[in-house]
Amino acid sequence: MSGGLIPTAAPDFRSGFISIVGRPNVGKSTLMNYLVGQKIAITSPVAQTTRNRLQGILTTPQAQIIFVDTPGIHKPHHELGKVLVQNARVAINSVDVVLFVVDATSPAGKGDLFVADLVAKSSRPVILGINKIDQLSESGRKAAEVKSSYEAIAAEHGWDVVKFSALTGEGLGTLQDQLVSKLEPGPYYYPPDLVTDQPERFIMGELIREQVLLHTREEVPHSVAIAIDKVEEDEHITRILATVNVERTSQKGILIGKGGSMMKAISTAAREQMQKLVAGQVYLEIFVRVQSRWRQSRTRLAEFGYKVEQ
Rank of each mutant, 00 (worst) to 15 (best):
Y189W: 13
L113I: 11
T249Q: 15
G259D: 05
L58C: 05
T105D: 07
V146P: 02
R295N: 09
V126N: 09
V46T: 15
V290R: 01
D134Q: 06
V102E: 10
I40K: 05
V308G: 10
V95C: 14
V224E: 06
V161N: 06
K121R: 15
G205N: 08
Q48T: 07
Q275E: 15
M274I: 10
E170L: 12
P185S: 10
L58E: 15
Q291S: 15
D12S: 12
I40G: 09
K132V: 09
R239E: 14
G129T: 08
E206C: 04
K132Q: 11
S106A: 14
V21L: 11
E285W: 03
E235L: 09
A152M: 12
A279K: 15
I66H: 01
G16P: 01
G27A: 11
G259V: 02
T70N: 05
Q281N: 14
R293C: 00
H77P: 05
L179Q: 04
G260C: 08
Q251R: 03
K264D: 09
L84E: 11
K264V: 04
K132P: 01
T238K: 07
G111Q: 11
V68E: 04
Q135S: 14
A88R: 01
I153M: 13
L284H: 06
V90C: 01
S29V: 09
S267A: 15
L207Y: 14
E79G: 01
G3A: 12
L214S: 05
V21W: 04
D117E: 15
V162D: 04
A120P: 00
V224I: 10
A166C: 02
I228R: 00
M32A: 12
L35Q: 13
A279E: 15
K307P: 03
E247P: 00
V97G: 00
N93F: 05
D96C: 01
S2V: 10
L118N: 06
V224Y: 01
V97K: 03
V102W: 02
V146S: 07
S261A: 15
L175I: 07
E145L: 14
A154H: 03
T60R: 08
T238P: 02
W294Q: 08
F164E: 11
K163Y: 12
I57H: 06
Q296M: 12
P7D: 10
G158T: 04
R217A: 13
I286N: 02
S19N: 11
R53N: 15
L54H: 10
T30G: 08
R23N: 15
G111F: 05
E218V: 03
S122W: 03
V126D: 10
V212S: 03
P76G: 04
E309P: 00
G171S: 09
A152I: 03
D96L: 03
G4A: 02
A302H: 12
T60P: 02
T268M: 11
V220W: 03
L172S: 13
M262C: 06
A302K: 13
A166M: 04
L128H: 01
V212P: 03
E233P: 01
